[in-house]
Simulated scan of single mutants.
Amino acid sequence: MNAKTPPSGPGPQNTDTDASTSKGDRIAKVLSRAGVASRREAERMIEAGRVRVNGEQISSPALNVTPEDKITVDNTPVGAPEPPRMWLYHKPAGLVTTARDEKGRETIFDDLPEDMPRVMTIGRLDLNSEGLLLLTNDGGVKRKLELPSTGWLRRYRARVNGRPTDEMLEPLRRGITVEGENFLPMDVTLDRQQGANAWLTIGLREGRNREIRRAMEAVGLTVNRLIRTSYGPFQLGELKTGEVEELRRKIVRDQLGLELEDPTGTAVKKPTAVRRPPRRKPGGFGGAGQPGMPVQRGEDDEPPPRRGGGKAKNAPRGKAAAGRTADKPGARPGSRTGGKPAGKPGSRGPKPRR
């Protein structure tokens, strides 16, 4: 079936009724799914006369097309859309979550590997926040996961300046109103107090602008570090700062309830090497300046799921695990247990043979 040609003349070139009854998808959506550009960028390309359908130049995005239609952009044929794909990205602090920044600041897209296809972010992390950010090549996946109705828990580790108590945190657990805006109840746990700062684990099910920072300010606390560790079933795990890892298609299909063109779920891409070394600051996340803050997760975070399922056999736990990896006085290079003591204090050593 050929594309539905919009009527000529002033005014809108398609009605809501036409859009709902016509077969196929809007041309901007098709171009977006094919990786040509975002929907808004595709609409601008159409208005600039760069897009042709079945050899005819179009000037309005109010057009539905089907797989049988031949689409070209700048006289280059547009291929079939890729199946939905998703990536995990460990966003560093100091990058803007946008394609272009009006202030000229560096964006996450400047940090992504050069071999990445055109992707969109699912939700945002503000300039000074870091941690897990989901990426996708499909606008439908993006919109689905950003809807509040999804109800996925987003977990964060927050370092706050102050001495929080249960009494201070209780309003956050009940739901708080900040500047006339109602925030849903948060799961807030006090992990530890470190001098003038404290570490909290926070879980929320909505993504309002600077929600955690604003809520903490309302109860007298200032957030000076914020790390997202999970987004629904997806975990930051051991992904290092600046690294990107693509999810298996089977995981994308199962978690999102999608029907993929490749139902085998066997296609997988190994973690993509970062284009430049990750930027780390002295005492950063997992560094020597942050005792007790591992790269993978905090003490109260849920452990990331293992790829093969189940639990690792003979895995060290708790203090025993720490004891096996900690450096001990007198340890031999590469030793786990630290070697044998030289003798009891005050001993003169072994007696010479007679």
Rank of each mutant, 00 (worst) to 15 (best):
I212T: 05
L127C: 09
M86I: 02
R280M: 07
A215C: 14
V119Q: 04
E106D: 13
S8D: 14
P7C: 10
H90S: 05
E179L: 10
Q290K: 02
R317D: 13
P84N: 02
A93P: 15
K269M: 15
G9R: 02
K91L: 10
P291L: 01
E302N: 02
G310V: 01
L256K: 04
K328S: 08
T21Q: 06
A215G: 10
G9D: 00
P233L: 05
R40P: 15
M168T: 10
R307P: 15
L190F: 06
R253Y: 07
V178Q: 06
V78L: 07
Y231H: 14
S38F: 13
R40E: 11
N137Y: 01
V36G: 14
P341A: 03
D126E: 05
G286C: 03
R205K: 14
R33P: 12
K240E: 12
F285P: 15
A273Y: 04
V160W: 04
I212C: 02
Q235T: 12
K311G: 12
G131W: 04
L172Q: 07
P233C: 03
M186P: 13
Q13C: 12
E261K: 10
R275A: 14
P171K: 00
P271W: 04
A34P: 14
L132E: 03
T337C: 00
D301M: 10
D16F: 15
V268L: 15
G349S: 08
G237Q: 02
T150A: 14
L256D: 08
G139D: 08
S230M: 01
T264C: 10
L200M: 02
V223Q: 05
D101M: 00
P148D: 00
P148N: 01
A312C: 08
E245H: 11
D254G: 07
Q235K: 13
Q255D: 10
E41S: 09
S230R: 01
D254H: 05
T337N: 09
A19Q: 15
T241N: 08
P92V: 02
G180W: 08
L204N: 05
L190Q: 01
V141D: 05
P271C: 03
T107G: 04
R306A: 06
N224M: 00
K250A: 14
L169A: 06
P171Q: 00
P304Q: 04
P316E: 00
R52P: 14
G242S: 06
G151D: 13
T337Y: 13
G162W: 09
R100Q: 15
F109H: 05
E181N: 06
A34R: 09
E167Q: 10
A19Y: 15
R124N: 09
R248T: 11
V30H: 07
G175Y: 01
A80K: 05
A3C: 07
D25F: 06
Q290M: 13
P113A: 00
R205C: 09
